[in-house]
Nucleic acid binder design. Structure first.
Lengths: 205, 205
DNA sequence: CGTACTTTTGAATCGCATCAAATCTGGTGG
DNA sequence: CCACCAGATTTGATGCGATTCAAAAGTACG
């Protein structure tokens, strides 16, 4: 993800005040690297520049549970109000993150009304986005989830995917096979128009 | 829910500054009453005192999807940054809500650092909760969702349900029949201990 | 008491997960 | 520039589990 796309997807990044921005450190991460673990003190706020990180937790059986996948922008923002992290964070791809000292981040939120506004907007947007996803995952079949996704994440009934279909399938709560087949069906029966990464809902005139 | 419990579950309520608190209006609501609809202008911030409200949306088939259930504390907080609501809100039980003028609410957030802090913590908590639900809905079978629910919403592997099983099923993204059967199976094979509204994960010593 | 809703069970069906395997693709190094 | 490899894409076959439709029993409430 380039810087422009990153800013566009995370307006709060653009409104970081200068005194906080100069404190940011870029950190390269390798696939498999752990950024922090459950119980670690929250001393930093992170933002993904490239690659992918995952917030994970293990249940009592040791099964891994993914809490959040982030390809760009802040992650574990919800931990800013906490003393310690409530999940592990590992990188799944080689990439880079931006690290802001938590103390300075809080201070900036306190002093800069503009930045604070952007941050609260960011949190509110995150809430809405998550609610939309919950709504989507509550749908009982693949076709409905796909259409819902295009309608809520795309524009005018069309979307240009910025991820592999396999990843899209995971986001939709489906196996990749199920997604492929559903797309095929929807294309065959004329519900969807598909061309590479462009997926559009066909107009029923 | 009494006032003490309410405050405990919603620290932001306790930190509402006096000048905002005196502007609050109590409003009685009946079961089935609609507080606002999609597209209505956001002119108030609400908090549940007693009873229950739901944020709902209907898909193209008319199936109801619950976006949020609130038994106490703020709801539709994410709309504070918006001009209009993105969902319907209806009361499912007789009760009461507290209404704050949105403008005064925003002003209070701007002026009172203590209140603002509580509010951001509140938003962050909501984000964490939603992430957990998305994660749960991504699980491909009923048993896993049930266990995940108890582990993330309950305490020490046990939970006392505060809703009907039918409603619980909806929250888990299942039909009620599927939930009943899954509970039965889990009880039969010794995974769960169930007694009325108490559902606990049996200890494997 | 009667009504509406929840809880519970049954049977049939369908869609998705799962396992398997064959292509296709982009990227890497020789 | 080609060979190669890892991962993504695609198709197939199978079984299971959830949905769906149906209906009975239980429960709350006025």
């Amino acid at each position: 993800m380039d810087w422009r796309t990153l800013i566009a997807s995370q307006p709060a990044l653009a409104r970081i005040p200068p005194q906080l921005r100069i404190l940011a450190e870029r950190r390269e991460i390798d696939a498999g690297e752990t950024l922090f673990r459950i119980g670690d003190r929250v001393q930093s706020v992170f933002s993904v520049i490239s690659g992918e990180v995952r917030l994970i937790r293990r249940d009592r059986n040791g099964t891994e549970v993914i809490l959040q996948r982030s390809h760009g922008g802040f992650f574990a923002e919800a931990s800013l109000g906490n003393k310690t992290y409530h999940c592990d964070v590992v990188a799944t791809k080689k990439g880079a993150v931006l690290r802001f000292p938590a103390k300075a981040f809080r201070a900036a939120l306190d002093e800069d009304a503009n930045f604070r506004d952007a941050w609260m907007t960011h949190l509110a947007r995150e809430v809405r986005k998550l609610r939309a996803q919950c709504e989507r995952l509550s749908l009982h079949n693949a076709a409905d989830r796909i259409v819902h996704y295009i309608e809520s994440e795309g524009t005018n009934g069309a979307i240009t995917l910025n991820q592999s279909r396999k990843d899209w399938a995971t986001e939709l709560g489906l196996t990749h096979e199920a997604l492929y087949r559903a797309l095929r069906r929807l294309q065959a029966d004329g519900t969807l128009y598909i061309d590479g990464d462009l997926v559009a809902i066909a107009q029923t005139n």
